[in-house]
Design a binder for these strands. Structure first.
Lengths: 161, 161
DNA sequence: GAATATATTGGAATAAAATGGAATTTCATG
DNA sequence: CATGAAATTCCATTTTATTCCAATATATTC
C-alpha cells in the first residue's frame, strides 16, 4: 500500500488533540513501532508530521557544525526556526496526538474545528481548511506558469509576459 | 525523544527565577546529571542556556589560540563578550534557575512577566515576548524571500511584481 | 560586633490543565 | 436490517503549574 497518500477531513477536539486517520497511523507505525513522530510548523502555515528518522535526515548536516554557531546569526536563526517550530509527540494508544498550543495558533488549527490531513509521500500535513484551498490554487497557478515556461523555452523565445 | 525542541510560555517570578518546562529540564539532565548549565546573554537580546559540554565545544577553538590574544584587540573583545555575558547556574530541585539581574535587564526579562522559552536543538533560549515576535517575523520574512527566489529561478524569468 | 532589616532560597499547598479511557453514537458493510 | 468498526464526546485521574509562606542567608546600621 502506498504510504502517506490521500486527503482526509478530521476534527480537532476540545483539548487540541487530533485523531489521525488509520492509514496514516499505520504508515507511521510501519516506520517506527513506538509511534514517535515529529511535529514541524511550516512557514507556509501548516503543520507537518514526519517520522523521527525522516526528520533527523533533514537536520543532520547543519547540526554537525556546532562550533560555528557562536559566531553566526544566520545559523542561530536556523536553529531557532527548527528548534522552536519542531517537537516530538507519540501517537497514543487511541491514535491521537496532542498539538501544542503555539502550533495550533500559528497554523490556524482551532479547537473543535474541522481540518484537512494531507499525505505528502514522506509524511503528512495538517492544514486549516481555507488555507488548504489557497495552497491548492497556488500549486495550480505555479504549474500553469511552469508549463508556459516549458513551452516557451521549447520554441526558443522569451515568454510573452 | 527529540531534545531541546518546542516553544513554551513561562513566567519569571517576583524574585527573578524561572521554572523551566519539564521537557527542557529532562534534556539538560540527560546531558549532565548535575543540572549545571551555562547562561549566555546573546547580542540579539535573548538569554541562551546551554549544557556545559555544548558551551565548551562552542568556545574550544577560540580558546586554543592564546598566543594571539596579546596582539589582537578583536580577540580580547571576544573574550570579554563571552566572559562577561556567560555564567553558570544549577537547575534547582524544583526545576528553577535564578537569572542574574544584569542579564534580566539586558534581555528585557522583567520580574513577574511572561516570557517565551524556545528550544534551539542544542539548548534553549529565553525571550522577552515582544522581542520573540519580532525575531519570528525576521525569520519568516527571510524565508519568504528565499521561497520567492526559489520559485523565480525555477521558472527562469523575472518576477511579475 | 551585634541586632535588625532585607533579600534570597527552598518547599508545600492549591489550582489548573492535560491525559487516558470508556461509553455512546455514527457510519459503513454484509 | 443487523453487525462490526470507527469516530466523537464526556468524564475521571493524574500530572503540572502557580501562588504563597517559611527558613535561611546576607547586608546594613548602630
Amino acid at each position: 500500500m502506498l504510504a502517506f497518500c490521500g486527503e482526509e477531513r478530521c476534527t480537532i477536539d476540545a483539548n487540541g488533540r487530533l485523531k489521525l486517520p488509520l492509514q496514516f497511523i499505520d504508515s507511521f507505525l510501519e516506520q517506527d513501532k513506538s509511534g514517535e513522530i515529529i511535529l514541524h510548523c511550516l512557514d507556509e502555515g501548516a503543520l507537518a508530521l514526519y517520522g523521527v528518522a525522516t526528520f533527523k535526515e533533514m537536520r543532520y548536516r547543519e547540526l554537525q557544525q556546532q562550533d560555528r554557531i557562536a559566531n553566526s546569526l544566520l545559523m542561530r536563526r536556523n536553529l531557532r526556526r527548527f528548534g522552536a517550530m519542531s517537537c516530538s509527540e507519540t501517537i497514543s494508544r487511541q491514535g491521537r496526538i496532542t498539538l501544542p498550543e503555539s502550533y495550533r495558533k500559528r497554523c490556524a488549527l482551532a479547537n473543535s474545528s474541522s481540518v484537512v490531513v494531507v499525505g505528502i509521500e514522506i509524511g503528512v500535513e495538517i492544514w486549516n481548511a481555507e488555507r488548504w484551498e489557497k495552497e491548492l490554487e497556488a500549486i495550480s497557478s505555479y504549474e500553469k506558469l511552469r508549463a508556459e515556461a516549458e513551452i516557451n523555452s521549447s520554441i526558443e523565445r522569451r515568454p510573452l509576459l
